[in-house]
Design a protein around this nucleic acid. Structure first.
Length: 299
DNA sequence: TGACAGGGGGTGT
DNA sequence: ACACCCCCTGTC
């Protein structure tokens, strides 16, 4: 018998075609750098993560060609398709990064050089919304803690000791007071109200995900607790909208410092971002973000 | 080892 | 501009 949550029978490691192997720090930044909140390191270079009803481990292949993965034997059938979507294996991120204006932006060029191969994930839309409703004034470790508690207490079991995140429908009947015990603080009310609002509108999230960027963002901003920053994160990390440009305090600082934009407000900065970085502004944002965080940690 | 102060990736009023 | 909520981190 293993510990709770410990998978005893894993499938064999298999390549994940379309995703090049990533340097250890770049893989860590991709999986555990603020896009997603359900990955943890199980071994040097090996990460275990969950989304929807999936549980997988990933690492860079020893031959250095691609990422490789394995899944609990009982869950392996659905894994290839789920992985392909989650890791956006159809997108060549090397080519996308090359289309950013690094040739005329020395700072961006340095950020790209620091995190070669950095990727954006395509997480389930509803789960991404839940994660970023938890994110206000919280750091990654704390958000991960809230999300883990929500899953453990309100999510269905998908493998021994492993729970998926609750769906919005499952969250709707949970009283706000009970959500507060998941360390959500003032975010509990946002999540409770959003859950009830969504439960009364089946299909609303799916419709929103399919809308053009601006319309989808406007709709998300109508949810309690969702402002422009959260909406942009949900669209960037949960819908593959690479034009979304979330402006948080890190980006505020980095744009002020590196682009001489001190004193600018978030909305004008978002405009600057889209104008300067172009239709893949969200990818540029992720590089700037990763770089600034690395500098901060080194202090 | 324990206590304490400081601050935190945002939204809503 | 400030409240919201309380956990994490660093420090003594």
């Amino acid at each position: 018998m293993g510990k709770a949550g410990e998978v005893t029978a894993w499938s064999a490691w298999a390549p994940l075609p379309g995703v090049p192997a990533l340097r250890g720090d770049v893989l860590a930044e991709t999986l555990d750098g603020g896009q997603a909140f359900r990955w943890h390191s199980v071994d040097a270079g090996t990460w275990q993560g969950q989304w929807s009803a999936q549980v997988v481990q990933v690492r860079s292949a020893h031959d250095g060609t691609t990422l490789e993965w394995r899944a609990p034997a009982a869950l392996v059938a659905a894994a290839p398709a789920a992985l392909a979507r989650y890791f956006a294996t159809d997108l060549d991120y090397g080519a996308l990064a090359d289309r950013l204006p690094w040739r005329t932006d020395a700072h961006l060029a340095q950020c790209l050089a620091e995190f070669p191969g950095l990727r954006l994930l395509r997480q389930p839309f509803g789960e991404t919304l839940l994660g970023f409703l938890c994110s206000a004034t919280k750091q990654i470790v704390q958000i991960k803690q809230m999300i883990a508690l929500l899953a453990a207490r309100h999510g269905a079991v998908i493998a021994p000791g492993l729970h998926r995140l609750p769906t919005w429908t499952e969250l709707a009947p949970v009283p706000e007071s009970e959500l507060r015990t998941c360390l959500l603080g003032f975010r509990a009310r946002y999540i409770a109200e959003t859950a009830r609002w969504l439960a009364a509108r089946q299909g609303w999230l799916e419709e929103t995900e399919a809308l053009p960027y601006a319309a989808a963002k406007a709709r998300l901003c109508g949810l309690p607790g969702v402002g422009e920053k959260v909406a942009d994160c949900v669209l960037l990390f949960g819908a593959g909208r690479l034009e979304a440009f979330p402006v948080d305090v890190w980006i505020l600082k980095t744009l002020a410092r590196r682009y001489d934009l001190a004193g600018w407000k978030p909305a004008p900065l978002a405009q600057f971002g889209r104008a300067h970085f172009g239709p893949l502004a969200g990818l540029a944002q992720q590089y700037l973000f990763a770089y600034e965080r690395r500098l901060a940690r080194r202090q």
